[in-house]
Structures are given as structure tokens and as C-alpha cells.
Design a protein around this nucleic acid. Structure first.
Lengths: 228, 228
DNA sequence: ACAAAAGTGTTCTAGTTACACCCATGA
DNA sequence: TCATGGGTGTAACTAGAACACTTTTGT
């Protein structure tokens, strides 16, 4: 190995994931109580292994703790304050993830205590995980305003009122349902299904599904997605 | 140290900066030829030291190589493919920086060969630095569309035509000067100075300067900043 | 007086907002 | 039949796009 490399100090590299879910009413984050600090809630996290990329590591850790695969996962920010982990200096790369809460299997996390918390009512968090969450919420709002990523938090089939509730929850406001549905439908990203949702309202709302073809194709070209 | 930590492998952590500058005509990036790979152009980079945060390290490295302080520096993305550096596994956190090209002192980089390249005419780059640059350009476009960060690339005093040329260069297009100046001035972020630029055109264009007070205040609240 | 860049105004269009009533259905 | 949530239309306003002529001044 070259001198230039030998002189350098290595550091532990961790991955932490902010996992967003939506239960139909409010926007939630999945937190766990784990190892070192059993008394404090923290994000789901783990260590980078020698044979994997950062994204692969985040994805693996998410799978190990939740059983979920094929979820929306995006790098958020690297955190590296010298003392962010008081035991050993660790650089943590935070990811944020959007999951379909119904697909999450709570048995998987096994020895961990895991719980979904409303983003408006979070407990104190380990290390700088609170900063990570704050940034993730900001990023979600920023991003969801311009790209229709909200679908990632809903089931395959969903209704317009459900989607509106999700956006209401993300922005902690109430959008106008007429403008909302007009704007959403004008993207032409939704396919109306013949079935209606039963049981929730008397009339029942039509189910829609995402035109995944178009969705992935245009995913990068959106601006100004929030309705009034 | 706890077992959980001991079992983990540490990695080298590097910082690499994509440094944007604008010479009045085209948008440029500062590249160097350095140590290991003397034949290949690369981004300015260095190693994370034990006592500094990621941002501090990026800032220090930028200073050491360019003499610049107080520049716009923003974290871009962490890159961690297992073999991105074929010699030793290294995680690199990329930053992007906007500097006033006139302030850059080429003598500082000393033993390094350093050169400004047009973003539309870049040489092959070391490791995954090409990916970093691509992402940085994308981010600059995305960001400059919504936040008036363009000022960071110009001198204290600048003219509207200069600012338009900068935006033309960023987006590789030509904006309409009437719409451009209307939109820029409508932000109320510019203060018109009594002096005119001499020597470039016969008539001379008025200088403006940024109302830094307002600028920093509203920096986070901009959307839809690109004129037609 | 002319060349070269600076500066400025208007019309048209498209998108956003605000707002209220009828519909379908199960109980 | 009535209560509940689902679904839709229109008018006013605002922002963006397209477009051309006049002004200043050094040579």
C-alpha cells in the first residue's frame, strides 16, 4: 500500500435509515431500541461491510430488520461530527426510505423493540438521529412537492382521498380536494380501476394504481407537484 | 470499547470537492493532477482527520489547495462502491462548492497542476470522479432553479447581463433578457449601485450587489427561480 | 452617424386558487 | 330518508412565455 494511504486513520462507517410509513391517518417513522443504548429510541442502522456499497448496505440492513425489499431508498446525508458517537468515531450515512406500512412484518425485527411514531410526536433519539429525522422530513416535503413519490407509501391500489390524506399528513395542512384530484389526475400517472373501496365510506371511492411505466419514466422531470 | 464496535472494519474516509467557477463566459470546474495518479485529472480531495467534521474537512482541503475561505460549500453525496479506489477501500463524501473565480489564487496549489475546465469539455477523471461531477452539475441546475445561488459565483458587484450569462451557462441555453431581468429584480434581492461597468460595452451596464441580509433570510424559501 | 450592448412594456396563455353543490350508498 | 364521504365545474387571478423597439455611448 502506498504511503499516502498508510498514514491515514480509518473510521467506522454506519448506515442509518429514516423509514417513513403512512397508516391512512398520519405519517410515521419506524424506530427501534437497540444494543448499546437500550433505553433510547434510535433509527434502524448497521455497519458497512467490506463487500457492499453504501446503498447495498442500507438496503440489506432494512431487509434484516423489517423483511422489506424493493422499497424506495434514497441517500440523505452523511453525518460525521467527531463525537457524534461518543464511543468510537463513526461516520454515518443516512438514508431515507418510503415503505408500504402494510407490508412491514413486525415479527422480523425479533430481539429489537420496534415502533411506528407519528412524525409530530417523536421521542428523544440516540446521538444525532434527531437531526437526521429533521432533515429527512424536510427532504420528504421538498421532494414530494416536485416528484410524485407519495405513491411509494401507499398500497398498490389506493384511492384519491387516501392520497390526499397522505399529502395532508406530509405537509401538516389540508389541501382542497377538488384542486388536489385535478392536479393529481392531470399527471396521467394514475390508472382508474373498476373496483371501489368498500367499508370505509358508504359510497366507496374508486381505486387507482400507478402507471409504473410512465412513473419511472418521468420521475425526474417533475416540478411543482403540490396542489393548493 | 464494546464488542459490537470491535468486530467492525473501519474504512478510510475522503472528501472530494467539485469546485464551480464562472469566468464571464462559461461554467468551469477546477481539476488537479495529484499524487497517486499523476497522469489523470481529478477533483480536489483529501482525507478526513480525527478532529474535524466532514464539512470542516472539506472546507480545510479547499483552503489548502485554493486559498479560498468563506465559500459556498454543500454536501453532495457519499460515494462508497467497494472498489471505487482500487488501492484501499475508501468512502468519499463529495461536496460541491461555488467560488468567485477572480478570488482564486493559482499559486496556492503549489506542487499540484490545477486547471479550470469548461463543464462541457471535461477530460477523463480519476476513479468515480466523473460520476461526482455529473451529479454535481445536475444538483447545481436543480438548485439554481429554485434558489438564487448563482450570486455565489460572481463578484461582489455584477451586472444583470453577467448574471444572465451565468444562468445561460448553467443551463446551456439562452434566457430571454427581458423576462430574466424582470424575474431577478422581482426577488428584491439585488441592490442597484450608482456605478456602471466600463470597458465591456459602450453604454455600460449598472452594477448590482446582493442584499445579503435578505438573501440569507430567504435562501430556503425559493421555488421556481428559472426565468423562461 | 453608426455599431453594440443595455434597458424596458405589453399581450397572450396556462396554471393556480377559491369556492359549493349533487351523488351514491349503507344503515 | 338521512348521514357520510365521494366526486365534479367555473370564474377570478397570477405567473410565465413570447416578442421588438428605444437608449446610451465610444469610436
Amino acid at each position: 500500500m502506498l504511503d499516502q494511504y498508510k498514514q491515514q486513520r480509518p473510521y467506522l462507517v454506519a448506515l442509518d435509515s429514516i423509514i417513513f410509513g403512512f397508516d391512512g391517518e398520519s405519517l410515521k417513522i419506524l424506530l427501534v431500541k437497540r444494543g448499546v443504548e437500550e433505553k433510547t429510541w434510535s433509527l434502524m442502522g448497521g455497519w458497512l461491510q467490506p463487500d457492499e456499497s453504501l446503498g447495498q448496505a442500507a438496503s440489506r440492513i432494512l431487509f434484516e430488520l423489517t423483511g422489506l425489499t424493493n422499497v424506495y431508498l434514497e441517500q440523505l446525508h452523511a453525518f460525521g461530527e467527531p463525537n457524534r458517537d461518543p464511543i468510537v468515531r463513526t461516520v454515518s450515512v443516512a438514508y431515507f426510505s418510503l415503505v408500504k406500512i402494510a407490508d412491514y412484518d413486525s415479527k422480523i425485527s425479533g430481539d429489537f423493540q420496534a415502533h411506528w411514531f407519528s412524525i409530530y410526536d417523536l421521542p428523544p433519539l440516540l446521538f444525532d438521529h434527531g437531526d437526521m429525522v429533521d432533515l429527512a422530513i424536510k427532504r420528504l416535503r421538498y421532494k414530494a412537492a416536485q416528484h410524485p413519490i407519495g405513491f411509494e407509501l401507499l398500497n398498490e391500489k389506493f384511492t384519491i382521498p387516501q392520497l390526499k390524506k397522505l399529502y395532508d399528513a406530509i405537509y401538516n395542512t389540508e389541501f382542497d380536494k377538488r384542486n388536489f384530484s385535478r392536479k393529481i389526475l392531470s399527471t396521467n400517472l394514475l390508472i382508474k380501476l373498476p373496483e371501489k373501496q368498500k367499508g370505509f365510506s358508504r359510497r366507496g371511492a374508486f381505486f387507482y394504481t400507478v402507471d409504473t411505466e410512465k412513473y419511472h419514466h418521468v420521475a425526474d422531470s417533475f416540478l411543482n407537484f403540490i396542489p393548493s
